[in-house]
Design a protein around this nucleic acid. Structure first.
Lengths: 269, 269
DNA sequence: CGACGAGTTGAATGACGTCAAACACAGTGG
DNA sequence: CCACTGTGTTTGACGTCATTCAACTCGTCG
């Protein structure tokens, strides 16, 4: 592979300049798992279905029935899965790959509102009420998406009552996530939102009680647009947190030194 | 009743001072229907159930079954229906009255995120996934709320398959509304959000092609907090729109003179 | 009348965006 | 090995929008 190997497991010093410059092109995660792999033409597995739907674990018949109505399709990196204001005829999710919901600016760039990593729903609601997709969906990496025609799912619901329960759970989880996200947007300022983002992605380290790391596996400008701020502001926020002694930035790895301080900022305001 | 009769059907002039000072206490709407009436101890009617749930019209048995599991309760004006972070054990909606979802500030005042006029859901999602209510619910007027225990609804779903379809529709509508709302919050500035709010409440007049009125039936500070701005900013926005010739403000009635101009501002940015 | 709450207005502050320049690095072609 | 280019990020200067704070008006209620 021509990709640079990051050396992130050092506290400080000479290698910091080397790691700070590498943007995580086409997601460093998939690159490390398998070089430039394209999604395979397969059905979602049981784990994927259970993650997508809520409620109790799925039975074998239900899995088979779901796979029977699922229609797979592939979208190349950067491709549009569905456009804003396009009529929704099916429930649609990404089986594998990284996608994002957002909208295209007049200048042509894409403002990410919400990232979706497979397996995850792109739009499980619009098709039920015959409305257009409220936002656009783009493939951030090569993508395997699956569509479930509304009529097919509806037919399946009568045969398998528990499936209805699971669809309801899935929708309920989305409502909950959206409500929390909106709450944050309405009442929290930029530092609080970024601190919240860091806390959510925080991986505690074995050694330190209130230390750990956060891996940024997207471009910083994409992180910024999720937080509804500009890349410049994000950069200044990171410098500010560093000056306050909350964290140490080395490229795309953030070494958190005071997670409680971040939590306090995330709550505050 | 001691409530003042508004005289809003004049173009301008002498009465403007009289109408501009009256805040719409306990909702001018319910006051005009019946003075200071308390919600009656009754079950939701068919119209209410059909509005709450989506999909095809409900049958008589389904209505009866729903009414059998519904538990009514009453909340006085200003009361808390449920608190933030309180565990959700039931689906809950307001049958009659005006409620609001939001959060209490450290100073004790209530920041409205979303108004709910009965019949409408307060929280139809949290109970399904055993999470706490993401926000607080307050009674803006005296309220009749109805709770549906999760287990009861779940049992009903097996007996009435179409009910599941309707619950899914109801949740889907909420996801859609939240997604649109979030979109506006992320990408639109204050003038655009307020213009959008006006456009949504616009009632065209018979005479003019692009004119009409917007009735504000809440306090302006509550409208402001829905738009995530301060009352001062809202006031300045109204003055700005007036200076641009888009509307004329008389107290709690806005006479829109250029709805297309408002629409342009609502889209823009 | 006086207290109070809602709304308005103005001045000052602050937070965040915009613009432009500089920098770091990957990839390319000499 | 070395310029050269393109992309992503950082930094600083500056502008703008919205909030904050403090008056002030108007109308209600006691």
């Amino acid at each position: 592979m021509g990709t640079v190997q990051f050396v992130d497991n050092h506290p400080d010093g000479a290698l910091m300049l080397a790691e700070r410059a590498m943007p995580p092109l086409e997601s460093s995660l998939s690159a490390t798992r398998r070089p430039a792999r394209a999604p395979e033409a397969a059905m979602p597995d049981a784990r994927a279905w259970n993650e997508l739907l809520g409620g109790p674990v799925l039975g074998a018949q239900e899995l088979a029935a779901l796979n029977a109505i699922a229609r797979s399709r592939f979208v190349p990196q950067g491709g549009v899965v569905f456009a804003q204001h396009e009529a929704a005829r099916a429930l649609i999710f990404v089986r594998e790959g990284d996608a994002a919901l957002g909208c295209t600016t007049p200048e042509g760039s894409f403002r990410i509102e919400r990232p979706v990593r497979g397996p995850g729903w792109l739009d499980q609601s619009s098709a039920w009420i015959d409305v257009a997709h409220p936002v656009e969906a783009r493939a951030m990496s090569a993508l395997a998406v699956v569509e479930l025609a509304r009529e097919d799912v509806q037919a399946l619901m009568s045969a398998h009552p528990m499936l209805a329960r699971r669809l309801v759970s899935g929708l309920a989880r989305e409502v909950h996530a959206l409500a929390l996200h909106m709450h944050g947007l309405m009442h929290k300022d930029a530092p609080a939102r970024f601190a919240q983002w860091l806390v959510a992605r925080f991986q505690p380290s074995a050694e330190s009680a209130h230390g750990g790391i956060v891996k940024m596996c997207e471009r910083k400008r994409d992180i910024a647009s999720q937080l509804a701020i500009t890349p410049e502001t994000l950069s200044r926020l990171m410098r500010g947190f560093t000056r306050q002694g909350l964290l140490v930035v080395s490229g795309y790895t953030v070494h958190v030194t005071d997670i409680d301080g971040l939590r306090r900022i995330a709550e505050g305001s």
